[in-house]
């Protein structure tokens, strides 16, 4: 068992998550991709925790899970609000920041 195999798996999941965030139009799908990114980070935390024989990795992974729950709650609320106001959750259409 290499440490690296876990880290590479996490890297792959992370990158796929980034890809999802960057390409998906649907707000809910963007949130799902963010979850993927957070999971990749968690794998890293737990892998390093095991590697160092330190409980801290797990503890922080748990914190990240809790924060992810909060993030999804607020994120979905925002998506719902966008949907209610614009009848669409296409994030690509939300271009109010246009200069």
């Amino acid at each position: 068992m290499l440490l690296n195999q876990y880290l590479l798996l996490a890297a792959a999941l992370f990158v796929i998550g980034v890809f999802g965030v960057l390409t998906r139009r649907n707000g809910v799908l963007v949130l799902m991709s963010v979850e993927l990114i957070l999971n990749a980070v968690n794998i890293n935390l737990v892998a390093f925790g095991t590697f160092h024989g330190d409980i801290a990795g797990q503890v922080f992974a748990l914190f990240v899970i809790a924060v992810a729950a909060a993030e999804v709650g607020v994120g979905l609320a925002i998506v719902l609000l966008i949907y209610r106001n614009r009848r669409s959750i296409d994030v690509a259409e939300a271009n109010l920041m246009k200069g």
């Binding site: 809910v28 949130l31 979850e35 709650g73 979905l76 998506v79 719902l80 949907y83 959750i89």
Partner: peptide, 12 residues
């Protein structure tokens, strides 16, 4: 979280 996301899919 997944259930929440599915609700989101439904509601939108």
């Amino acid at each position: 979280i997944l259930i929440l996301l599915l609700f989101g899919v439904m509601l939108t």
